[in-house]
Nucleic acid binder design. Sequence first.
RNA 1: GCCCUGGUGGCGGAAUCGGUAGACGCGCAGGACUUAAAAUCCUGUUUGCUGCAAGGCGAGUACGGGUUCAAUUCCCGUCUGGGGCACCA
Length: 1001
Amino acid sequence: MEYNFTEIEKRVKDKWAKEEVYKVSNDSDKPKCYILDMFPYPSGAGLHVGHPLGYIASDIYARYKRQKGFNVLHPMGFDAFGLPAEQYAIETGQHPAVTTEKNIARYREQLDNIGFSYDWSRAVRTSDTGYYKWTQWIFLQLFHSWYDRKQNKALPISELIAIFEKEGNANIPCPGDETLKFDSQKWKDLSEKEQRDNLMQYRLAYQGYAQVWWCEALGTVLANDEVVNGVSERGGYPVERKNMRQWFLRITEYADRLLTSLDTLDWTEAMKEMQRNWIGKSNGAEIMFNLSPALSNRELRNISLSFGEGRGEVSIPVFTTRPDTIFGVDFMVLAPEHELVDDITTPEQKQAIEEYKTYVKTRSERERMSEVKQITGCFTGAYAIHPLSEKEIPVWISEYVLAGYGTGAIMGVPSGDDRDHAFAKHFNIPITNIFGDRYNGDKAYSDKTGTIEDSDFLTGMNIPAATEAAINALVDAGAGKRKVNIRLRDAGFSRQRYWGEPFPVMYVDDIPYGIDEPIIHNDWHLGHLPVELPMVEHYKPGPEGEGPLANIEDWVTTEAGQRETNTMPGYAGSSWYFLRYMDPHNDTEFASRKATDYWNQVDLYIGGTEHAVGHLLYSRMWTKALCDLGHIGFDEPFKKLLNQGMIQGQSYFVGIAEWQKEIEDTDTEEIHVDFLRSCEHRGRNSIAPSSPRHIYNGLEGHISWGSPNKRLKYGHLFVDTKDRLTKSAYKNFLDFIGDYTAEKRLEMAENQVLWEEKLTEDGEQYIQCKMEVEKMSKSKYNVVNPDDIVAQYGADTFRMYEMFLGPIDVSKPWDTKGIEGVHRFLKKMWRLYSDEQKGWIVNDETPTDDELRILHKTVKKIGEDIERFSLNTSVSQFMICVNDLTGLNCHKRGILEPLVAAICPFAPHMAEELWHQLGHDTSVVTAPFPAYEERYVTDNTKKYPVAVNGKTRIEMEFPIDAEEAVVLQEVLADETIQKWMEGKPVKKFIYVRGKMINVVA
RNA sequence: GCCCUGGUGGCGGAAUCGGUAGACGCGCAGGACUUAAAAUCCUGUUUGCUGCAAGGCGAGUACGGGUUCAAUUCCCGUCUGGGGCACCA
């Protein structure tokens, strides 16, 4: 019987479903193992071959662990709220719930097709009310909490109120507003609104202001993704930054813990490094620059900031990591949004500053950070006084200083910082050199070595010493303090959108309350979770850029108060979903403490690096907060993290031909290669210089091919192995596109294509295409659907091929060319068990030592490879094993039965079928992973490469336990070795047991 | 721009802790079986020089340096592909 994968896989899948083999219990004597995939966002494009890469790897690991005797939790679900569904709703009028449902059904089908061992009874979707009820509940816990910096943990806000009533906030610095100070009496005298405003400055979920992309024409707030080249993607309307009241999560309070507990995690160093950089903790100083009273706006005298208060002037704080360069300050730069800009600008500069600010409103943060060559800025007319030298320093604004980072102002040290240097050069600001000969006037000296020069009392000191001395002097002068800065910002948690979790918040007299607070909860039926997302007729934004929910008057206005109309962002649901899988149907808690204690941390989490700082940082914070508040017993969600690389698509491009008639040299005419009509234009045409003579429509002319920059849609389906589109493939392409009548297609294929001069090996005309590797995406017409591959080769081949492509953490383009080899391997393995003519051929003969060695070495390597996630080499090892056993003509049960159990994680369908045919009633899924015996995997001799002076010359065989003296003697006796020694004495003899031998002459 | 990461035959990749570079697979070339095809099997396949041949000599892991008896692996610099940069998920 031959390997009929279609029939086998169907039968096996039905069996698994019927017997519920993947159902996981929370009660087990076995050790637990929690293996999780980052759940997908179910987009309309469906699953493509890139998605399953990580899923297959985790599935192999999960199946392996299960066979190794663990109780394995391996769930899957859907991150179902999000912008694309809403965008699609805006375009087509279909409700996101409907399209999301459809997309999830499609994903589920595609996932099932690949044979994953998920316990689907535990599946979650973030958009289900039964799920987001608990997302809202967690939000309320954060809202009702504050962060105690002394105990280093989140505590209920009620405890904070008790402290305020007793002693005010003297001992509790306010994270939201450093200047906020009150004693117990003052607290008690505050109105309800004032008290709650103050509490808001402490809450872990709080309201503040943030800039968003505002599009006047669309009347809506846009995501970064929806802004392309400074205009809205939809419609191309102008956009600008606008300040809006938003919800935030106070993740900055967790910065230190997020940083230090990274050390407890088994993540790649790169991933930890990215998180460390994102948190961006740096030591330095905050330095106050007072405005020069003589030269700055006199009305300012009454304005003052917290620090530097009492100096009677306006002061601008800056943060710097290089206080040692304080005498190199030649100018100051404020972020254009800085709150003091309007106040300090002189009347003469007012107009210029306003114009500049208008320009900056159109710029994204990304552009402002990355476009370093384009230097812009504007002088405010104000001057600051250097805190130590008392020199006057011009105050500028520029887009390269961001409002959200540090204090939103910097001291410009052009001789020591590249961007400051470029700025000073561009605006002709004189540069003070504080690095002596190391600054040459052309390029800033930004190295952190050497001494500081021409800097008063710092002159001659090295950088650490100068840093200390500078800080001390600034502190003495009352103009500075030591400061630790973090780059991490509080996370914006509101979206002016429809398709997300509604906030469990109501406004009473414009004061936001959690709906579980007495004012809402006690008197009305409204105080219960979930706050369900209401149905809407349309997705138009509300007034003033509010979300679509603001349009539903009946919903917004309740007896208890006005509802919050923002919704939560995509990462809300995904920040805690790993907990829900542990107890997915619990309707009294987000998950029982028993369940979270049992499953505990995720033992292995697999997903893409694109989530390195977003999702992974927020879910770590949520976990810590839930732990602090006593809801779970661990404060890190993902013990081990593995990143899968991206599978990219192959896109094909063709050049447009330009044809120049022989008769009139100047008159060029573009040849209408009609299929190019279905190609998307990309970039500019450039005409190749060569112009071979060509006959087209009976006229002779010159042809020049443009550079290949027209996208050949779905090119990957039609080109041959040499990236050529042949005439016959072109006909298929036309049929596939289906835009033309059959006659027209024939006409196009026959007459309207300019084929290359040469023919293929098979004598066919063709066009040479150019392949480029791009992200696999529907919009690039290069997606490959796993269903097609599974239909053609089977799920087992697909699984093994995805693994065989290379290490899971490396990105690579999808290429089907090698899949035949993997498929051939499975067929070859099948033939060890079943012959096409003879049928089942497994016998009960006693295995030979050679056969046992092959098996045991394979089992050992597979186990080790899975443990270190080197799944591509596992596949190779199976191939070697099957090749060897085929060579030995081995059909023995003693060898082949363990082999089935070993390949089960990779090719579960085939394994199940063979297992059954081997006579087992139970599923192979529960069969123990075979053990290996040491005696079959160790060799007692080793063929050593023998090198002279590092160059390998011969191979010599020695017992594995050979003594060095014996080896030395034999090696030196060898003729070839003697020849290469050229009679010189042995300087050094290197014998690494089991590895190699090197003689140094 | 900043942070992270990759670069090895015609192609995907292997070499796990510094120890024989190119395992395994694809592709290609030649052959066997077959009326034929499919399927299957066998041989060769980094490159240059040399040899009738077995073989021999040299070069080679993006590029340029360095450390070492020995470097794909460690260090410094350069080029280049990919991901992220706070409202795509």
